[in-house]
């Protein structure tokens, strides 16, 4: 199974997670079945509008089961939940720290958008 984490940089797992979702610079996809780590660029980062939705599409396409990030707006959240992707909220820590919390079930699953977005306009 795979999870995605928003990342502030793409060097290694000691970088901090990025608290933004739609305009995070990178996503890191972690596959727990084979411990593969894959950093991808977030093409939505510079979107003129609807970055959260476009980022959600990227995450959906990666076939992950969970997303760990800081804040998700309502439209992106709606897309993720329709795709059965669970969203976990985390504080500003390294990706390594966040992943160990995830494995220990210490992260809070988000049941509703953590902020109300800004209509993307």
């Amino acid at each position: 199974m795979k999870v995605a984490v928003t990342a502030s940089n793409n060097t290694d797992l000691n970088v901090k997670i990025d608290l933004k979702f739609g305009r995070a610079p990178y996503f890191v996809i972690i596959d727990f079945d084979n411990d593969k780590v894959n950093f991808i660029d977030n093409s939505a980062k510079g979107a003129t509008g609807g970055a959260g939705i476009q980022a959600a599409q990227t995450i959906v396409d990666q076939g992950v089961e969970g997303l760990i990030t800081g804040n998700v707006g309502p439209k992106a959240f709606n897309v993720l939940s329709k795709a059965n992707i669970k969203v976990y909220s985390a504080k500003e820590e390294t990706i390594k720290e966040v992943l160990s919390k995830y494995k220990n079930n210490d992260l809070k699953e988000v049941a509703a958008p953590t902020n109300n977005g800004h209509a993307g306009m």
Partner: peptide, 11 residues
């Protein structure tokens, strides 16, 4: 009350 305001108060 539109988008710019919302962007300025978010968080």
């Amino acid at each position: 009350i539109g988008c710019p305001v919302i962007a300025s108060i978010n968080g």
